[in-house]
Amino acid sequence: MGQVSARKEPLLGNIQDISHQVWLFQDQTLIAVPRKHGVVPVNVTLIACNYPETLEKNKGNPIYLGLEEPQVCLCCRELEGQPTLQMMKQNILDLYHQTEPVKPFLFYHNQNGRTSTFESVAFPGWFIGVCSKGHCPLIITQELGSIYTTDFVLSLLQ
């Protein structure tokens, strides 16, 4: 089947949490660290899924989320009975051009005021989060509160 979609390139942007920690790709891990001069945040790639009508409504825009360099995509898989956030070597446009939504790679991007949440489509109720004290790897969590920050600010590079 030919290319269905109209978008040529994914969106590029940075994500930081409400404690001003940016996402950093370090030693094959995505961590959140305080933004400083000399800390180069990783560029995230985002692209809206073409089939929002097949997914839950009112949860936000279903999007694929990846990194520009290295070319990986964030995905949620069950590991030892626990939903786990992983990074898979994957071109985000390949996911985008699939004829069906690829749920493990999809997140509901919900923009509420200035902050955004990223909820796993495969595991509803599980959100991308970082530990509040910082310098921790990104995870997905059901615990929304003091231990983990699940509120982020998305800034797109236009």
Binding site: Q3, A6, L46, N61, Q111, L154
Partner: peptide, 19 residues
């Protein structure tokens, strides 16, 4: 608005025209 991730497309019969 800036920083949106909205999908923009044309649909007919609630299906994207390309499909």
């Amino acid at each position: 608005f800036r920083d949106n991730t909205n999908l923009r497309c044309w649909k007919v019969n609630n299906t994207q025209v390309n499909r």
